[in-house]
Structures are given as C-alpha cells and as structure tokens.
Amino acid sequence: MRTLLNLIWLVLSGFWMFLGYVLAGIICCVLIITIPFGIASFRIANYALWPFGRTIEVHREAGVASAVGNVVWIIFAGWWLAIGHIVSGIALCVTIIGIPLGIANFKMIPVSLIPLGSRIVPAG
C-alpha cells in the first residue's frame, strides 16, 4: 500500500514539492553561510519525494542555534514551502483518492517550517 501511495504521490504532488526543496537547497548552498539550511532542505526534498513509510521525529533539545536557524529559515524559505504544501493539500483533498495525499501534505508543513532539529525516520 505504501508503494502505491508513494507512486500516486510522486505523480500528483511529490515531484513538484521535491523541486521546491531542491531549489531552496541550491540557493542556500550558493550562499556559503546557509549551507546547513541547504543540507536540511535536501534531506526534506528526499522525504517530499517518497513520504509514505517514513515519519518526522522532532528533537526538543536541539539548542538555541537550531531555534535561531529555524527563525531565519521561516523568514526566507519556510513559509513559501508551507504555502506549497497547503495549496497542494487542499487541491488533493478535493477528490476521495487524494485525501490521504492531502493529509500527508498537511503533515509535512511543520518540517517545512522548522527543519533544523528534526529527523526523518522509518515509520514503525
């Protein structure tokens, strides 16, 4: 079932969100000081491409640097990506088949806003 959902996701939403995260990662890596944001963006791009069967684990003890970095990320890239998830999630929820995909889009909003201090782990 995960594979089927991932394939449908890839066609309807995953590829476009993947491109958004890759673009954000490239821009962050070009600006040398924001390379940690670029690495986080590439990590989330992989998750956005194939999300079913994996989940997000948030580490509350990530530290002050992670919190400051997340604020900077929200200002420059996070809200754009979150809007992308909201728009595609609403569009997917219009059909019955798309409802699980729309819900998956909504579940990705927190990691798109706060990528530092989060890990993507296999769902268990």
Rank of each mutant, 00 (worst) to 15 (best):
I83L: 05
F52A: 02
W50T: 10
I120Y: 07
I103E: 07
W79I: 15
S112L: 08
I74D: 01
T55P: 04
G102P: 08
N46L: 08
G63K: 13
K107T: 10
G53S: 09
I120S: 00
L4V: 13
L19S: 10
G25F: 06
T34Q: 09
T34V: 05
I86G: 01
S66Q: 12
G69H: 06
G117W: 08
E61G: 03
W79A: 10
A40D: 08
I26V: 14
N6E: 06
Y21W: 15
L101R: 02
S66A: 15
A48L: 03
H59T: 11
P51H: 08
V22C: 10
M17K: 07
F18M: 10
R119S: 13
A65Y: 13
T34W: 11
P110H: 03
V30G: 06
F52H: 04
I86W: 08
R119K: 14
I74H: 08
I120P: 03
L81Y: 09
C28W: 09
I8A: 01
N105I: 00
P100E: 13
I120K: 04
T55I: 01
N70C: 13
I27K: 11
G63P: 13
I74P: 01
I35S: 08
V11R: 14
G38W: 10
P36F: 13
I99D: 01
V68R: 02
P110V: 01
I96N: 00
G63T: 08
S118V: 09
C93S: 15
L101G: 02
A67H: 10
A40M: 12
I90K: 03
L10Y: 11
I90H: 02
N46M: 06
M108N: 07
S118G: 03
A91R: 06
I86R: 04
W50E: 07
L4E: 09
T55E: 14
W50A: 05
G14N: 09
F18E: 10
N46G: 15
A40R: 11
I114V: 15
G53N: 04
V11C: 12
G20I: 06
V71W: 12
T95L: 14
I86Y: 05
I32A: 01
N6Y: 12
W16A: 00
G20M: 05
T34S: 13
V87P: 02
T55Y: 04
I83A: 05
I96F: 14
S13D: 07
I27R: 12
V71T: 12
I56E: 08
A65S: 15
L101T: 04
K107W: 08
L23T: 15
L7H: 00
L116N: 02
G14P: 14
